[in-house]
Write a protein that binds this DNA or RNA. Structure first.
Lengths: 331, 331
DNA sequence: ATGAGAGACGTAAACGCTTACGTAATACTA
DNA sequence: TAGTATTACGTAAGCGTTTACGTCTCTCAT
């Protein structure tokens, strides 16, 4: 790995400038010189040093992705989209698993800034003031994915969580359900929490259905919490005929609870999920769920990141319901 | 982002050498100087340029991870373990989604080498000669994860696939099953394919049970292929009482097929999976499966990568069976 | 034949750091 | 008190590239 541009130059009997021109495909040398140099390059196994390059032309061709949890289908599918575009555009992606931990996040942010990444994707998590201030100071493009913060200057890509939750709830209502529960994410989450709760409530109110606090149980978007939330809901004796979950994983948790209780799905309870990850397909019964175009979200975000920070708009992607077998039609 | 070490030096009225010493916590300055410089650093918002640093001390604090598919629980959980240790040791990780594509892989390898990563984790995929030659030329530590290649000089971390498949099959036999099918990964895969097939066959033979080609269907480790493989097996009229799958995802695919056919699980068919990802827990019925310590595998691999390339041994991690509800006891 | 313009290069100055070495001032030792 | 360490710095030489300028040689039109 010790072979440098001067080694190549010496070996080929030219100056380093010429080697550089050839490597970078710039004009200024004869075909013979080119052949000679290229031969030396392969013979010596020369690999241009990206750091030295980056130092002079201030480019790293690297971006950073901050996400709360690498495990989980949602993150994975997003990552896939991101990585796809990144590779196509010649960028490397550094992943940072924040674990929802403030210190960890700041530590990553510091690293990314020292490494001079050219852009940052901030995923699924609430952008605190601390993060926002730091990110702004970096003076590089940042895009928020599956989250957003109008108070910050950063663009975002997401679905309309309120409308999505509304339509998921509405779907249950339209299928004749009237006693509906909600398995929400954490109430504090201003993106995947609050708006989905509000969307649920609004749909219920618009249909004159009950939707007080008793109908809602809270989880953390993950499987285990879905089991617990369903148990909680069940213990309240509301005679629910359907449940709306704020994530597919929690929906699967609810299903698991029901199975354990020996209840039939969807006969005894209809369930609708949120996300439409592979989990929904693999569930039994296959989960009817609110589809978010996850991979596309990652692609669009990456596109925005590259297309310069110019357009700082909030992009809302389309959602729709993917019908499968977890909702019984009561009509 | 334009503030450099000389800006700080000028602002603090010292030389860049002194600033460097302070930033790097080396001796050679008075407490007052230190305070002064540190004040300048925060005032100017100085962030050392990792490229410039890396250029001089030949360190990037970055490693690369090559994996066939970022989506999928197995990769995710592995990544989690890797990322955890990497962060603890101060490394950044660049992810490369090869998509099992040779050109893409080589292109990543080239990028990683130009970026001068200090180590590479090669995951779940067969290490071809082309890759091996290139990786060797890099002269940096490489460790193979969930794969291995005795012909290469690289260490590896994985479970004993043959033994694992043997014991999964044995588990079914011990529960009274005699007509057992196998949903295998691709036969060509010398790691997760072949050895698991052999383990299955051996267990069957040791018990004097039938295990010809008719008992085996092939998939690609993913969900859809599991459905297809199960359909294939079913069409052969073998009256199987149990199936062994080479991945949890395929096992879930098999379950989905059975559900669609209106068959009962595990009454009509027992299924055992392989991996023990979250998928197994979320399945219905909960999947009994061969547990691989996936996250630990990632951690160990990362540990090895850092501890220098000295010990190039093949590490075999323990596996065991996690019993859940997908296997019926026929005894 | 001459001057201009066009290749085909080479030189050297950055890029932002680290670090070996040098130097001046102060403290300590015999 | 002279000599020796020690401390607290500053100078400058890299690290491996890119690139603005220069120089030298041809070619070709006049």
């Amino acid at each position: 790995m010790a072979v440098t541009i001067s080694d190549v130059a010496r070996h080929a009997g030219v100056s380093i400038a010429t080697v550089s021109r050839i490597v970078n495909n710039l004009p200024g040398y004869s075909p013979e010189t080119k052949d000679k140099v290229e031969a030396s390059i392969v013979e010596l196994g020369y690999k241009p040093n990206a750091m030295a390059r980056g130092l002079v032309n201030r480019k790293t061709n690297t971006i950073g992705v901050l996400l709360p949890c690498v495990t989980g289908r949602f993150s994975s599918e997003l990552l896939r989209g991101i990585e796809k575009i990144a590779h196509a555009k010649g960028y490397s992606v550094i992943i940072c698993n924040t674990d929802m931990n403030g210190e960890r996040t700041m530590s990553y942010l510091k690293t990314l800034s020292e490494k001079r990444v050219e852009g940052i994707l901030f995923i699924s998590e609430w952008l605190t003031d601390e993060y926002a201030v730091f990110l702004e100071s970096l003076q590089i493009p940042v895009v928020l994915v599956a989250t957003s913060n109008p108070a910050s200057p950063f663009p975002s890509v997401k679905v309309d969580d309120f409308a999505a939750a509304y339509s998921a709830t509405r779907y249950l209502i339209d299928h004749g359900h009237t006693r509906i529960g909600l398995i929400s994410g954490t109430e504090k989450d201003p993106i995947a929490g609050r708006p989905r709760i509000e969307g649920f409530k609004r749909a219920m109110k618009d249909a004159d259905l009950r939707c007080d606090q008793a109908c809602i149980a809270f989880g953390d978007f993950h499987f285990e919490s879905g089991i617990a939330a369903m148990a909680e809901l069940d213990s309240r004796g509301l005679e629910l005929s359907a449940v709306c979950a704020a994530s597919d994983e929690m929906a699967l948790g609810a299903m698991t609870y029901m199975h354990r209780m020996g209840r039939k799905l969807p006969e005894d309870l209809s369930i609708i999920g949120f996300d439409d990850t592979l989990d929904a397909l693999m569930a039994y019964p296959a989960l009817t769920t609110l589809h978010q175009p996850i991979e596309l979200m990652g692609e669009r975000a990456m596109d925005m990141l590259c297309s310069g920070t110019a357009d700082d708009r909030q992009i809302i992607l389309e959602h729709h319901i993917t019908e499968r077998d977890s909702v019984k039609d009561l009509r």
